[in-house]
């Protein structure tokens, strides 16, 4: 199946800059979603998504069709930008990693702070579905952002961007087995993070 974005990049290399506008229109939503979910910051996501498109635009001449999938190339650029952003901000992550890894995976009662955090959500679910969706998004996004970077990145690429294991492996320059194990590990972490919310609902 031919990759339309790859064909559009060929058009760009031949001087048709309108093709790049089409690339932007096709990929801006998944790119902004990927960065926003990974960084948990929609405002920064737009800036970094624009920067990703800028870098792609500058690299049009160097783009090699067929060497890698377009989506792999795009997410590789975006991932590096996100990593740099996290390093520059010195963001959180290590604390929650340790707490997750040391926590028993099953058979343990929810932590007290988890119950306190989710208690208002249960009350707010009553008025309607809108609030319920907002609260659910808030909880799930919080659980994602608490994952360590090396687990969060493949999880978002797999379960939100719906990339294949092979594509994620190429994007992150990881062996396929490592990619699969990291994704499974990230899902297990997420399960533990959402345990109280799921069991309560």
């Amino acid at each position: 199946m031919p990759d339309l974005d790859d064909e559009l990049m060929k058009q760009c290399q031949q001087g048709n800059m309108e093709a790049f506008d089409l690339i932007v229109r096709r990929n801006r939503v998944p790119l902004v979603n990927f960065i926003a979910r990974f960084l948990d910051n929609p405002d920064a996501a737009e800036d970094l998504a624009q920067e990703t498109f800028i870098r792609m635009f500058k690299a049009i001449k160097r783009y090699k069709s067929g060497a890698a999938k377009f989506s792999t190339w795009m997410y590789h650029i975006a991932s590096n930008l996100c990593k740099n952003e996290l390093r520059n901000r010195g963001r959180r992550g290590r604390f929650f990693v340790d707490s997750v890894t040391t926590e028993p995976s099953s058979g343990s009662a929810p932590a007290e702070e988890d119950l306190i955090a989710t208690a208002p959500a249960h009350v707010s679910l009553q008025p309607g579905n809108q609030l319920e969706r907002k609260e659910r998004e808030y909880v799930v996004q919080g659980a994602i952002s608490e994952l360590p970077e090396r687990y969060r990145l493949p999880l978002v690429l797999r379960d939100l961007q719906e990339l294949s294991y092979e594509e994620i492996s190429d994007t992150l320059d990881l062996p396929l087995g490592t990619t699969k194990s990291r994704i499974n590990r990230a899902r297990l972490m997420l399960k533990d993070k959402l345990r109280s919310f799921v069991e309560a609902s």
């Binding site: 979910r37 659910r136 998004e137 799930v140 996004q141 659980a143 994602i144 999880l155 379960d159 939100l160 899902r187 997420l190 399960k191 993070k193 959402l194 345990r195 919310f197 799921v198």
Partner: peptide
């Protein structure tokens, strides 16, 4: 279920 919540974002 947690994976379903993730997909429903």
């Amino acid at each position: 279920k947690s994976l379903n919540l993730l997909h429903q974002l």
